[in-house]
Amino acid sequence: MWHGEYRDPRLVEVYDAEHPWGWEDDFFMRVLADRMTPRVLDLGCGTGRLAIAMAEAGHEVTAVDPARASLDAARRRPGAARVRWIEGSFETLPPRSFDAAFLTGHVTELLVTDEEWSGALHALRDSLTVDGRLILDGRDPAARPWRGWDRAGTERPIVLSDGSSVIAWTESVPAADERTVSVVHHYLFPDGLELTSTAVHRFRDETTLRDSLRAAGFRVDQLYGGWSREPVGLSEDGELIVIAIAEPRILP
């Protein structure tokens, strides 16, 4: 899919303007501080907001993303020189190189097929030291977040750094089983230019997450439903936030 918010420089700017530092970033920084974690991976780092903050907190951070326009924006941020930036995806991860890996910003939903998802989890397991942590998030499909993904429910102005506003909205088409949702994001610029970005989101429930992590060599340590560490289903955030531990490989 196109994913223009990550690949078109004009939409990367819009994405950055709409996604400043938030409570989810505070959550990830607190999780990072829970244990000694010298070497950190940020997979799907986008424009680098979280990666740079982790590096400024004293961690050795490697940030990986397949979208060059996002990485270009990340490298322009203050503090970017502290981070090692890599254009690529989970296929490029070095083995046994990290004490923690982060997969944030609902990036898990963009790994649509079972093969992509399994491949990413196995690559992340191989990139972590034994007892290293994987921290990831995704929307809880039980909350059916896509129900409000239409123009009436999503249209909003996004103010850019120069003071101009882009009008944005989202339209979605759920699959019959509601595990996958196709979306089109619209962005109307002040000069009348309209750009669109397409994507498919795959929603995995708690059982699917636990089973797939176990199959990839992880043990689920914590699973929350919100950014204040609420139990699943008891938060308006409607999240599934996982902290999993890389277990030792069992040799045949």
Rank of each mutant, 00 (worst) to 15 (best):
P78C: 07
V12I: 09
A73P: 13
A69K: 05
R156E: 01
E155M: 07
V61I: 02
I241Y: 00
V130C: 10
L71F: 10
S165H: 03
E24P: 10
D137Y: 01
R30W: 11
L136N: 03
C45Y: 09
D150N: 12
G44D: 09
R68N: 11
W2T: 15
R75W: 02
H122K: 15
D177Q: 10
A57G: 08
V31I: 14
A67M: 12
I167T: 15
I135M: 07
T113A: 07
E91Q: 15
W85A: 05
R151Q: 13
L213T: 01
S182F: 11
I250E: 15
L195P: 04
R139H: 13
A73L: 11
R249M: 12
D99L: 08
V112P: 00
E24R: 08
C45P: 00
V64H: 02
P95I: 14
D150Y: 08
G238Y: 02
E236H: 13
T47N: 07
E247S: 09
F203Q: 03
G79S: 02
H122D: 08
A69C: 00
F189E: 03
W85H: 08
A63S: 00
E155T: 08
S228H: 14
E5A: 13
W21S: 09
G4Q: 13
A175N: 12
V14E: 04
G48N: 06
Y15T: 06
Y224I: 08
R210L: 03
A168N: 00
A215C: 02
R210N: 01
T198Y: 10
P20G: 07
S118H: 12
A175M: 06
A152T: 14
R39S: 13
L234K: 14
S235L: 06
V220G: 00
G105D: 05
E116T: 09
R35F: 13
E247Q: 14
V61W: 04
A63L: 03
W117Q: 07
A101K: 02
V64P: 07
L43C: 01
V159S: 06
E60D: 15
F218P: 03
D72A: 11
G163C: 01
A69Y: 01
R35L: 15
A175F: 04
D191N: 13
R144K: 12
T129Q: 14
G233A: 03
V64G: 00
S164E: 10
H3M: 13
T129M: 12
T108Y: 00
G225S: 05
T47R: 04
F102K: 05
H59I: 04
P145G: 10
E230T: 09
